[in-house]
Design a protein around this nucleic acid. Structure first.
Lengths: 336, 336
DNA sequence: ATGAAAGCGCTAACAA
DNA sequence: TTGTTAGCGCTTTCAT
């Protein structure tokens, strides 16, 4: 591994110019004579010279690298946001260091090693809900929240219109004639779970329906938790003809439990999910759901972060992203 | 954004020592007196000093950063490998720059910007099947293939035992009495599709069954392609009672097509998938499949890469990872 | 055990 | 237009 340890000076020597001129060429500076530029480019080609990005970062004090932390990299929602952010960042010449931070200890360590150490110039924080995270945020690098509002005005954020989403899902079931609508929430310490719940409660209230606490169950986003929630619901013997699951995985778990209990979807129970995950339309029945545009979220988050890095004087923004109802076959007119 | 532009020299001044001594302290060098160490640590604490990783990289010629490219970041298989690799890398003090390289132009650019530029010390290449990629590999940094054998001995690789997987799936259907077994492959330019096909053909042959070309359909891993493949199969009017889909998404698409055609799974047609994707057990019926251990793959890939970086003299390895049959409800005894 | 000097490969600022 | 001189913040000699 002799490496292409060819430096700007080797090129300079070969081309018979100063290393600075080489620097001007690789930086596409205007102030360089056509002839010398060609000489330099020839030398670069001949030697196979590649600029050293670390030395460049060192000299310029900029790494053009962003950090991106999320609870994990496998949930489709996260992965999709990251993919979009990476794509958008690259358009602007930035790269992404990704890491999963399942707990706050890991998170703090990552902030120190990737952000405080100046390896990266900013942080994209996906689902920054948990525990003491908020207190461990980077001190000197801009941060963008994805999936949660930033409470202060010191930070950008991109998040869903979760209240409206909760209203939308609930309204859909109401319009189909359902009166007893159960809801399976995500972990209630997460803003989005709370907001969707608010939308649900509001909509029931507007319809003059009192909320029934036994119809509200807390899940943890997993299919298993949706499955268990429905079993609990069935055991409670409270009648219900509709379910609003705050994500598709829990909806799928719920469908499984209903199937096992001999309740048909949608004939006996209508169910609406959230996310529009891949293959949501391949379940039996295809899942009616609320779609979020993860691509736009990732893209906007990256844009905001780069803007915060390059124009720190501009005001921070909080982008509320729209959601959409996707009608498929898991909901229908209430028959009871 | 005044930044914590506190340098080693500020700390040195505050502690009344040379900057070199500070360097020794932060590098946990033995050769430093207890008292001075405490003085320095106090100064570090007081000033909130954070070592600059870029300057460190510059001086040491090492970035402790790995690049990881995959066709995308959202396919569960890829995401899961990346997550595991990132986790493993971090255990050894390495970080990961991830990027999706959907085509070879992007790939070449990324190799240049992330690897040739020495931002990263090695490359993890997930599914390096396509086009001219092989010719654009990094010249001076070690590379590990994930999901394909490296043909030369100059590179590590981690891949599935795809032939055995193909045999396993086919044997399972044969043992259930199925004689007409269709197969939906992935893109045939990918090694794994080819290898799984070889396993399928071998197993049929051992059973004395001649392969039927109309029963072999090429998909592109998408659910839609599985759906279309089955429709083509039905249109061809060739009888079949079993399907081996080379991934779960295509299996799910296939189930959809069968459902629409009024064929029951597994009563009329048994179907086995591949991957054991999340929620595979939540379909109706729960999907029998071949499981791959993506976590181990990512972990081993990262280990191999770090080994190649730190011990380049050691021989490259090609790890063939085992797969396992996961029995669920989408296959049953052949009734015809 | 500690310090001084040199240098990693580049860019910025100033001269020529 | 080009070259020279200084760093960027750290580590690595080599002295002391």
């Amino acid at each position: 591994m002799n490496n292409n340890r060819i430096t700007i000076r080797d090129v300079a020597a070969k081309a018979g110019v100063s290393h600075q001129t080489v620097s001007r060429v690789i930086n596409k500076s205007e102030r360089v004579n056509e002839e010398t530029r060609i000489k330099v480019e020839t030398a670069i080609e001949a030697l196979g010279y590649q600029p050293n990005a670390i030395a460049r970062s060192m000299a310029k004090g900029r790494t053009r690298t962003l950090a991106c932390f999320s609870p994990n990299l496998t949930d489709f929602t996260y992965a999709s946001i990251i993919e979009a952010a990476e794509f958008e960042a690259r358009q602007s010449g930035y790269f992404l260091m990704t890491a999963s931070a399942p707990d706050s200890a890991t998170f703090s360590l990552l902030v120190e090693q990737l952000v405080a150490s100046r390896r990266t110039e900013g942080l994209l924080l996906i689902n920054p809900f948990m525990d003491e995270r908020y207190t461990r945020l980077p001190q000197f690098a801009p941060t963008v929240f994805v999936g949660a509002r930033s409470s202060q005005n010191t930070m950008d954020s991109v998040f869903l219109d979760d209240e409206e989403a909760g209203r939308m899902a609930t309204r859909h079931l109401l319009e189909l004639g359902h009166q007893s609508i159960a809801m399976i929430t995500g972990p209630l310490q997460e803003d989005c779970s709370q907001d969707r719940k608010v939308g649900y409660l509001e909509t029931l209230q507007s319809a003059g329906l009192p909320p029934n606490p036994t119809l509200i169950l807390e899940g943890d986003w997993s299919a298993t938790s949706g499955y268990q929630a429905v079993n609990k619901l069935l055991a409670a013997n409270t009648p219900f003809s509709g379910i609003f699951a705050q994500n598709d995985r829990m909806a799928v778990g719920a469908m499984q439990a209903l199937r096992e209990a001999g309740r048909r979807v949608p004939e006996d129970v209508s169910i609406i999910g959230f996310d529009d995950m891949p293959l949501a339309s391949y379940y039996d029945p295809p899942l009616t759901t609320i779609r979020q545009d993860t691509f736009s979220m990732g893209r906007e988050a990256a844009r905001l972060l780069i803007r915060a890095i390059e124009n720190p004087e501009k005001q921070r923004r909080n982008l509320r992203m729209p959601v959409a109802l996707v009608l498929r076959k898991s909901t229908m007119q209430c028959s009871s």
